[in-house]
């Protein structure tokens, strides 16, 4: 464990909590892509199947359980409790265009052709595109509430810190996970455009982020 990975995991947890509390307290999921949250729940489900078979550390187990619980709780808020405020019109990204290529690629490019390994690979590839429905929804509505942009900021920060974590691990341990790194770089690139808007608009105090 290193400071980059630990702070990355904390940012990830903060992002998920920000989103959950925003929906819970405003009793609305307006502007939130339910599809992205479904994809994240699928990412955690397919990645954490080793929760009961491989014990790594208390931290690892606790964080996996927390991520799974919060992911499913957020999905249930969007699709059940506050479903009347769910804007399915704007959340129109065709997720099958993500799931099919990601599933195909996880069968082609993986470290070993075993169910657990293919599902883990699927979760890595899926995570790199899971935010796209949310980013697409923002471009479609042309705006995002500032709290939603803070959620995306912490999510992007978590990914950026993971890149630093991989540089550190390669330098210190000679550890290099090609699938995770390539997928992580692609994922982080998707946040670049958002980061630009976030720093030039939201942090300038304009409250909500409106796209040009």
């Amino acid at each position: 464990m290193n400071i980059f990975r630990l702070s990355g995991d904390v940012c990830h947890l903060v992002a998920i909590i920000i989103l959950f509390l925003k929906i819970w307290r405003s009793k609305s999921c307006a502007g939130i892509s339910g599809k992205s949250q479904l994809l994240f729940a699928l990412v955690f489900t397919t990645r954490y199947l080793d929760l009961f078979t491989a014990f790594i550390s208390i931290y690892n187990t606790v964080m996996k359980v927390v991520f799974l619980v919060l992911a499913y709780a957020t999905v249930s808020l969007i699709y059940f409790r506050f479903r009347k405020s769910y804007d399915s019109e704007s959340d129109s990204f065709r997720v099958e265009f993500l799931l099919v290529p990601v599933a195909g690629l996880s069968f082609l490019e993986n470290y070993s052709f075993t169910p657990l390994e293919i599902l883990w690979t699927f979760s890595i590839y899926l995570e790199s595109v899971a935010i796209l429905p949310q980013l697409f929804m923002i471009t479609k509505t042309g705006e995002a509430e500032s709290i939603t942009t803070h959620y995306l900021f912490f999510l992007g920060l978590y990914r950026t810190l993971y890149l630093a974590n991989w540089v550190w691990r390669y330098h210190e341990e000679g550890f290099f996970d090609q699938i995770a790194v390539v997928s992580g770089v692609v994922q982080t690139i998707f946040y670049c455009d958002f980061f630009y808007l976030y720093f030039t608009r939201v942090l300038r105090g304009s409250g909500k982020m409106t796209l040009p």
């Binding site: 550390s57 470290y111 974590n165 996970d177």
Partner: peptide, 10 residues
């Protein structure tokens, strides 16, 4: 071949 890596990252 099985060259899986340790899955210690979240």
């Amino acid at each position: 071949e099985d060259d899986t890596l340790p899955k210690d990252e979240l």
